[in-house]
Amino acid sequence: MEYKNHMKLQFDSKSQNEAFARVVVAAFAAQLDPTIEEIADIKTAVSEAVTNSIIHGYDGNLGSVTVECNIIDNTLEIIIEDDGNGIEDIKQAMEPLFTSKPELERSGMGFTVMETFMDEVDVISEVGSGTKIKMVKKFNSLNEE
């Protein structure tokens, strides 16, 4: 029998909301009985994606960030989306150490961190229309209703 669950969260693009987002996603993922390490991985990846939306997507302007999670059997899908600036060159943005904000002392490792901690990371972006990051994490245990 297939297990499914879904949640959606929307908040202002304020740095104070980054911690809120990662705790909410971690709590939602808890139903998959993850290890402490897996929870830490999820929180870190969500942190990076939400921070990218806030810092790069809105560039100091107030906007909205949406976090959506789906669970299908033992797989967690996390979608983080903004309506901000968008990414001009996704391939370049995903290169380790690349940052468009060196003046803010950004490390340029956000996408690399996401790719390290998640099983899949896909980025869809259009300049002027925002960015959508989809991350997938698979777990060993199956949740049963």
Rank of each mutant, 00 (worst) to 15 (best):
L97W: 03
S15G: 12
D33P: 08
E37F: 14
V123R: 03
E115N: 12
E105P: 05
P96S: 12
F98R: 07
Y58L: 03
P102I: 00
G130T: 00
K138D: 03
S64D: 12
V113H: 03
L9C: 14
N74M: 02
V50C: 07
A40D: 05
K137V: 00
T66E: 10
V67G: 09
T112C: 14
I80L: 08
I80W: 04
V25G: 12
G110K: 07
E38D: 04
K14W: 11
Q16V: 12
K138N: 01
Q31F: 05
I72L: 11
E115R: 11
V46R: 05
M135H: 05
E126L: 00
S47A: 08
T112R: 15
D12S: 09
A49Q: 04
E48W: 08
I39N: 02
G63K: 02
D12H: 14
F20G: 11
L62I: 14
A30K: 10
Q92L: 15
A45P: 08
E115L: 13
I54R: 04
V50K: 04
S125H: 02
K138R: 02
N74F: 01
E126C: 01
S13V: 10
D122G: 13
H56V: 03
T35I: 03
M114K: 09
H56G: 06
E120L: 15
I133Q: 06
V123D: 08
K132L: 08
F11T: 12
E77R: 12
E68W: 12
A19M: 06
S15E: 12
S47W: 03
V24D: 06
T51F: 08
V113F: 10
S53D: 13
D41K: 05
S64V: 15
V121Q: 14
E120D: 11
K43V: 07
A45L: 13
K14I: 14
I72M: 14
G108S: 06
G63L: 01
D73F: 03
F117N: 00
